[in-house]
C-alpha cells in the first residue's frame, strides 16, 4: 500500500511538473495518432459510405471482411508493415522504419477498418429519404452523397473518434515500427511498457494516468456525438 501511494504521489508530481519525457511522449502519441486518423478518415469514410449506399454482389463478404479487420491485432499490422518498409522490403528505399512516419502508416492501417465500419453502420442507419430528396431537388449523384455525409456528420465524427481512441491506446505498432526511440518515436504506450519493465513505475503510472484521461475524453466526446 505504502509503495502504491508513494508511486502515485511521484506520478502526479511528474505530471504537474510537466516533466520533459512525459510531455514529449504525450505529444508524440497524439501527433502520430492525429496524422493516422487524418489519413484513415480520407480512406475510411468514403469506403464506408460507398459500401453503405451501393448494392453489389459480394457486399456481405466485404462487410464481413471489414468487421474482421476491425479486430486486426496490432502486432500483425506491425509485422506486415515492418516487412514492407524494412530496407529489405519492397518500400525499403524510403528508409522510414523507426520513424514517426512508419508508425503513422501502421496506425492508419489499423484505423481504416474502424472508421470505415462505423461510417458504414451510420450510413446503414441513415434515413432512406435523404438521397432521393437530394436527387429530386436537382443534386447529382455525388452531390447527393455529399449531402448524405453532411446529414450524418455526427455519426461520421463518432467513427473518426473511435478510430483515434484505438490508435492512441495501441502499443504493438508503435513499438515495432517506431522502435521506442527516446524523444522521437517514444509514445505514451511504449514508454509505459518500457518504464514498467525497468521498474520506473512512477513514470509509467504518470503516462498511464494521462492516457486514461485522453481515453476518457475521447469516450466522452463519442457519447455526446452518439446522442445527437
Amino acid at each position: 500500500m505504502e509503495f502504491l501511494a508513494e508511486t502515485f504521489r511521484t506520478a502526479i508530481a511528474l505530471i504537474l511538473s510537466l516533466d520533459g519525457e512525459v510531455v514529449t511522449a504525450v505529444a508524440t502519441s497524439i501527433s502520430v495518432a492525429l496524422w493516422s486518423i487524418l489519413f484513415a478518415t480520407l480512406a475510411g469514410v468514403p469506403a464506408g459510405v460507398a459500401v453503405g449506399i451501393t448494392e453489389f454482389p459480394g457486399k456481405r463478404l466485404v462487410i464481413t471482411i471489414l468487421n474482421t479487420l476491425m479486430a486486426l491485432p496490432t502486432v500483425v499490422v506491425g509485422l506486415a508493415v515492418y516487412g514492407i518498409i524494412s530496407r529489405q522490403g519492397p518500400l525499403g528505399e524510403l528508409g522510414i522504419l523507426f520513424t514517426p512516419k512508419a508508425m503513422i502508416i501502421g496506425q492508419t492501417v489499423l484505423a481504416i477498418p474502424i472508421v470505415a465500419n462505423f461510417t458504414l453502420s451510420t450510413v446503414k442507419g441513415a434515413d432512406p429519404r435523404i438521397i432521393p430528396t437530394a436527387l429530386t431537388l436537382g443534386a447529382g449523384p455525388f452531390q447527393s452523397v455529399l449531402q448524405l455525409a453532411k446529414e450524418l456528420r455526427f455519426g461520421i465524427m463518432a467513427a473518426v473518434i473511435a478510430g483515434f481512441g484505438r490508435v492512441i491506446a495501441e502499443v504493438g505498432v508503435a513499438m515495432m515500427l517506431g522502435g521506442n526511440i527516446r524523444g522521437y518515436t517514444r509514445t505514451m504506450t511504449t514508454a509505459i511498457a518500457m518504464e514498467t519493465g525497468k521498474g520506473e513505475f512512477a513514470l509509467g503510472l504518470a503516462l498511464g494516468i494521462i492516457l486514461m484521461a485522453v481515453a476518457l475524453l475521447v469516450n466522452l466526446f463519442l457519447n455526446i456525438l452518439q446522442q445527437r
Binding site: 432521393p132 430528396t133 437530394a134
Partner: peptide, 26 residues
C-alpha cells in the same frame, strides 16, 4: 422536375438552407 414525398425529409439545419438547397445546386 421535382417530387415531394408523402412524408418529406427536411435536412438538418434551418428552414432557409432547406428551401435554398435546390437553388444553390442550380
Amino acid at each position: 422536375v421535382t417530387l415531394l414525398h408523402q412524408s418529406p425529409y427536411l435536412f438538418d439545419g434551418i428552414v432557409f438552407t432547406n428551401v435554398a438547397f435546390g437553388l444553390k445546386l442550380r
